[in-house]
Design a protein around this nucleic acid. Structure first.
Length: 217
DNA sequence: CACCAGGCAAGTA
DNA sequence: TACTTGCATGGT
């Protein structure tokens, strides 16, 4: 359903509470679309600190470029990204993505930006190793397209506060946000960033009570 | 020491 | 279709 009506008051209310409490996020951490795309794959089920170490290694090796990542041997790449964990798997996934990026878009960010978002999203999802969260992270944070990123924190926070039913699938929860909020890249960017920061600091898995959580509860 | 982290795909019944 | 399992390092 494409919605043309008003934004959901409750959802915007939550957004404003979080923003007031935590302040602006300046996300994605890391500079430039290429680094963001690489980070989106490396951070799959992995703490960001580990990803930073891997990215720093790639920078030190002069390998953080489309050309280098397209040409580098998979085994070599695996060694460089070792601190990120699942490094054999992620090396394969990075190679698969950059192979797609090179062949389909000649390694040009701008070519991707010219595509309709949902079509590009489907293309990304067809790449082995790119699932819905990684695809949406690339679309939103690297390409600045208005898609909402759902992650483990989003599920946990919303269900813990009884804002949605449990057992909601990814696409349903994504639509939940996008159908109730204006299609605004900046809003989706900040909202997701705030949810992750809230999750890290106040809504941890081993801490069922949200302590100082600004949403109450 | 045990547990967790900004997923995803392949295998099983 | 609905579960389960493998993948791995580094921080708390």
């Amino acid at each position: 359903m494409v919605m043309a009506g008003k934004a959901d008051e409750n959802l915007l209310n939550i957004y404003h509470k979080l923003f007031s409490f935590l302040g602006p996020s300046h996300w994605w951490p890391g500079e430039g679309p290429l680094e963001i795309m690489v980070g989106a794959i490396l951070t799959q089920n992995t703490a960001w600190n580990n990803v930073e170490q891997a990215i720093n290694r790639l920078k030190a090796e002069g390998a953080l470029s489309v050309k280098a990542l397209t040409q580098v041997n998979e085994g070599q790449l695996a060694e460089w990204i070792r601190p990120a964990g699942y490094y054999h798997l992620k090396a394969r996934r990075l190679k698969a993505f950059f192979s797609f990026f090179q062949e389909r878009y000649q390694g040009r960010i701008q070519r991707m930006k010219e595509r309709p978002m949902e079509e590009l999203r489907q293309e990304l999802l067809s790449v082995k190793g790119i699932g819905p969260e990684t695809a949406d992270s690339i679309l939103l944070y690297a390409l600045e397209m208005p898609t909402f990123v759902v992650d483990a924190y989003t599920f946990r926070i919303l269900s813990r506060h009884h804002l949605v039913e449990e057992e909601m699938g990814y696409e349903v929860l994504r639509a939940y946000f996008m159908d109730r909020l204006p299609r605004d890249t900046r809003l989706y960017n900040e909202f997701h960033a705030l949810l992750v920061r809230l999750g890290k600091d106040y809504c941890k898995k081993n801490n069922p009570r949200c302590g100082l959580c600004p949403l109450g509860g």
